[in-house]
Design a protein around this nucleic acid. Structure first.
Length: 593
DNA sequence: GCCGTTTTCGGCCCGACTGTTTTCAGTCG
């Protein structure tokens, strides 16, 4: 069995959890958590690397490298096995219950015999056991009530929500918050602003120069919204709630309020990532300053940001804080502590692609297969969004459930596309293409002489998505080598939170794509975002072009473009790296159309 | 457990809020 980074990350995370519950040194716990994160985010399988290469990675030292080697060789980690013997199997799951930390979990276990989330649920319903739980020090009436609510929340929430879902909810909330008395400005921060594919909670930052009374009023209006299901906290600088819109998932939303003089520092602070913030604060310290959510200060930061005005170096805007630390402004999508500060210091940050740079969509569908609009209506929608090039790429014949086109229907359809293209000449360039299935063996769903007649061929995997890494790598490389293929669509076929998809050897795909001049897609649909950020970053590094496409099946789907662009930005892509941003002439030359 | 332009030992971010603590611990981000 191949050993994936996700499995390894889970092992390290479990070691962190078990150590935490057992009361180990907290910095050891933090180190293990960091190692789990680094491993989970790494684009190349770590099981195959040697100890020296492993130790070169940030956050991985002798200890973790040794355990990775042990796991790679034996499939086990001795220390984890020992830890598991000391703690009931379901106990770490309790750490996921909001409001429960390692101290309380340990007390629940040792003093009330609670061994899992399920067990806690039944204990809270059982009179005798509730008494045992309530007798724990610090466990009062409100704590118990909070636990009941947290357990209900866990059942209703979907865990991390997809970025598209979170963005919709955030925009709805921002509209409300901007209407509250005393709010000068409101914006989203956190992982949503960094463009991560899934979001744990929504952070909203409010700029207000009102006094405590005004801020308390904003917090009250926020917690009083009709979308609010639970209120977790309500103070004069922050409030925290759980909300749900319609039948959507329940999501935690944190609101923070800061004065104008601190808005930039606070925006940085709440945008994160945590690791980026730590690196920034360390940088401030080295320069005899300190950085918190209220600003950058000479010497030690005053409590609550209320101090001598002459101590404040910067704080009103992000740019001035970066500048005062000798750095260029770092785009939020790059704030992951993966070397961005070094580049910012050398003024060597890439000029990231923006939504407005995209002038072509090379992967869309019409009523000919499973889309909702005609060729003409799709072209109108594309023009309304300012696109200069649109490729119509309906499904191929194996996609029976999607009304995939037979070779004959495809050629008729292509003729229709070209007819509409003639009518719209000068307004938009319409291309006749296909999203052709990459079959399980790597062959394509149409014969070459059919594919040769098209302007653009996007080849995508749709079925056989549980193939082994080795088999699917060969399959995708074969498609890349096909002379008609220009773009590999959603290369892994994953659906976020729903389906794992393929796990090909990404460096090999990139190498093949480079050799054959093929682009790899970032499918912008927020269910897909495939390639994912880390993989797209490898492509950019290797000089392999990306293609950001919406895979639109209707008018609204064109709006998904922003999520594809966010993913490309996280990968460090500039507009030169993305074929959809090229001029029409250059793009047509590349397509050979 | 990790890391090194003060360090191979001794640090490791820090402020807000809650609940039940009569002075602060736990949790969270």
């Amino acid at each position: 069995m191949p050993k994936t980074n996700a499995e390894l990350a889970a092992i390290l995370q479990e070691m962190a959890d078990l150590n935490e519950i057992l009361g180990a040194n907290r910095f050891k716990v933090i180190a293990l958590q960091k190692a789990a994160r680094v491993v989970g985010d790494h684009a190349v399988a770590l099981a195959a690397l040697g100890a020296d290469e492993l130790k070169g990675l940030d956050g991985i030292g002798k200890g973790v490298a040794g355990r990775i080697a042990e796991w790679a060789q034996t499939g086990r980690v001795g220390e984890l096995d020992e830890l598991r013997e000391r703690v009931p199997e379901g106990l770490p799951g309790l750490l996921n219950v909001p409001g429960l930390g390692p101290k309380t979990v340990q007390l629940l276990w040792k003093e009330a015999g609670v061994a899992s989330v399920e067990d806690l649920k039944s204990a809270l319903e059982d009179e005798e056991r509730v008494a045992a739980v309530a007798s724990i020090k610090g466990m009062g009436k409100k704590k118990l009530e909070g636990l009941r609510k947290s357990l209900a929340f866990l059942e209703r929430s979907a865990g991390r929500v997809r970025i598209g879902t979170a963005m919709n909810l955030a925009e709805l909330l921002l509209e409300r918050v901007r209407g509250f008395e005393g709010v000068a400005e409101a914006t989203h921060a956190g992982s949503l602003r960094r463009g991560r594919e899934t979001i744990g909670d929504i952070d909203i930052l409010v700029r207000t120069d009102g006094d405590e009374g005004v801020r308390a009023g904003i917090a009250k209006a926020f917690t009083g919204m009709d979308l609010v299901r639970d209120v977790l906290a309500e103070g004069v600088t922050k409030a925290s709630v759980r909300v749900a819109a319609g039948d959507g998932p329940e999501v935690q939303v944190d609101l923070r309020m800061v004065p104008s003089s601190s808005f930039g520092a606070a925006l940085m602070y709440f945008t994160g990532s945590k690791e980026h913030n730590v690196a920034m604060r360390e940088r401030a310290q080295v320069r005899g300053m300190s950085l918190n959510e209220y600003g950058l200060w000479k010497g030690k930061a005053p409590r609550q940001g209320v101090g001598e005005a002459d101590q404040l170096v910067a704080g009103a805007s992000e740019a001035e804080v970066f500048e005062a630390l000798g750095l260029a402004w770092v785009p939020p999508e790059l704030r992951e502590d993966r070397g961005e500060l070094g580049k910012a210091e050398a003024d060597d940050l890439p000029r990231l692609i923006e939504v407005g740079d995209v002038v072509a969509d090379l992967h869309t569908h019409t009523t000919a297969s499973d889309g909702a609009l005609s060729i003409e209506a799709m072209a109108e929608a594309a023009m309304a969004r300012g696109l200069k090039v649109l490729a119509i790429t309906d499904h191929s014949k194996s996609q029976v459930q999607a009304n995939g086109l037979s070779a004959e229907r495809l050629l008729e359809h292509a003729a229709e596309v070209r007819e509409v293209a003639r009518r719209l000449k000068g307004k938009i360039t319409l291309l006749a293409g296909s999203e052709v299935d990459i079959l399980a063996d790597g062959s394509l769903d149409y014969p070459d002489e059919v594919l040769e007649q098209l302007d653009v061929v996007v080849a995508s995997p749709h079925a056989a998505l549980s193939q082994s890494s080795e088999v699917c790598t060969k399959r995708l490389v074969l498609a890349i080598e096909h002379p008609c293929v220009r773009i590999i669509g959603h290369p892994t076929g994953r659906l976020i939170n729903r389906r794992e998809g393929l796990s090909p050897d990404i460096p090999r795909l990139i190498e093949a794509a480079r050799e054959h001049g093929v682009a790899l897609e970032i499918n912008a649909n927020h269910y897909r975002l495939d390639l994912r950020d880390a993989h797209a970053a490898l492509a950019v590094k290797a000089g392999v072009p990306l293609s950001i496409n919406t895979d639109a099946h209707g008018e609204a789907d064109f709006g998904q473009l922003r999520f594809g662009v966010l993913t490309a930005r996280r990968a460090g892509a500039t507009k030169a790296d993305v074929v959809n941003c090229w001029g029409v002439k250059k793009l047509m030359g590349w397509l050979g159309a």
